[in-house]
Design a protein around this nucleic acid. Structure first.
Lengths: 239, 239
DNA sequence: CATAAATCTTGACGTATATCAAATTAGTTG
DNA sequence: CAACTAATTTGATATACGTCAAGATTTATG
């Protein structure tokens, strides 16, 4: 049972957590918003471990994460898995599926989460009428390409400590953009998932966490992280 | 001095090399093609080493490669460079720039090349009128995301020989799609550039080439490559 | 065509990260 | 809350790839 969600409420939610630029819609009049309202539906909540979609599923809709977080992963035929991203509230998920009309990865909830369904055919129809929506959709897709290229740089030319520092710094910025602490947070993913994302084994992730703690950069206990030296963490991968 | 290029000729060029699905435009009536014609311009040729654009340049147009090939690279502040892709005829380049209105990487010609300029504002305007063009643009962007995720898988979870085998197999398929031999071709890029793309040092690339030759998978002399065992090469990274 | 400058190959050796293993801690469930 | 299970940490050791270096080959240039 899907129920309609007010786009005003959606925008309000976004504004409340400083997500204006992350969420759809943007810069729309009240009338235009009503049109977004008509195509946007709130789906049921997802519990930790639930699949939002699986690789191979028919593609019908993009999904905007309203609360919680997800991981996306691609599974190699030989069983290898690669985590391709961790997505948080306000981010759009499923763009990879447009080109084949089928999902190319799994999306799995990392905690209790809510998503908004955006039927893609209706989104395309509406974006033909609303140039600012069209431009926004293009920017979101382009941003995903840039993000992926950043990960390629990370995987292709950084050492373990640089990768982990960049990962923590990125998380920090994203929490801050949502109004949460940039220095204290709970990791929603396991060492194994972090390792898969960063091209490292879980033991290496764990060791590097310990090393960062030893040098006073962070304080870490299981999934609770405190960043003690944000500039130092940044210098770790940008110098 | 830019001169107009007939979209029919563009399509013909594409059809000739089996690139229908790679090139813009697709599935358009003669009238719709005329509209594409009005916004598509042939730029001057580029020689090996010429920049099509540089990181930081203002973004105005996408570029369709008509002949030749390019590499895209991102430069890290500390001098590290990462090659993010090698683009061939029929492929669209510059999608990463949409999100910030500025290019986020350099595009450098690997050989004598010609490109078609596609002013993005006009492309957006036209794609609001032509749903099949709109859908095609979205698919091209989505395909780029999928491609990047494939490289993330490669960089994050494959060994040197698997990476190089996947690279050669991919080149083979792309040459085949353009009507060239899938088993004999000239590499347009250096060992160093291949290494940067694959997250390896040039010595490792060179050694792995020699190893493949030793085991009868390929025959390689400098930049001339012959793939002797395509199934074997495929098994190398997919099993 | 001759010379220089890149690029590529190969070898010896070093190192970052993987692998294997065991102990510890955190999280889950009856 | 106890018992179990999963996740994390840490150590010892192995290995794939990087680094340094020299020579060979290819490509560019006058």
């Amino acid at each position: 049972m899907q129920r309609s969600v007010s786009p005003l409420r959606l925008k309000a939610v976004c504004s409340n957590c400083n997500l204006r630029e992350l969420c759809l819609p943007v810069d729309l009049s009240v009338g235009e918003m009503q049109q977004m309202d008509d195509i946007c539906h709130l789906k049921r909540g997802y519990a930790r471990g639930d699949y939002l979609y699986r690789s191979g599923d028919k593609f019908l809709s993009l999904h905007a994460i309203r609360s919680g977080s997800f991981k996306t992963q691609v599974l190699h035929e030989d069983g290898r898995e690669q985590v391709t991203g961790f997505q948080m509230a306000g981010e759009i998920i499923g763009l990879d599926a447009i080109c084949t009309d089928h999902h190319t990865c799994d999306a799995v909830a990392l905690e209790s989460s809510e998503v908004c369904e955006l039927p893609f055919d209706k989104l395309e129809m509406l974006s033909r009428k609303l140039p600012s929506l069209q431009r926004h959709l293009h920017k979101i897709m382009s941003r995903e390409i840039v993000r992926d290229q950043g990960i390629m740089l990370l995987l292709g030319s950084m050492r373990a400590e640089e990768r982990l520092a960049a990962f923590l710094f990125n998380l920090s910025q994203r929490f801050a953009a949502r109004g949460y602490s940039s220095t204290q947070f709970q990791l929603r993913m396991s060492r194994q998932e972090i390792g898969s994302y960063l091209g490292l084994k879980l033991e290496t992730v764990s060791r590097t966490f310990s090393q960062f703690q030893g040098s006073g950069l962070i304080s870490v206990k299981a999934r609770s992280v405190e960043l003690l030296d944000l500039p130092g963490l940044h210098a770790m991968f940008s110098s």
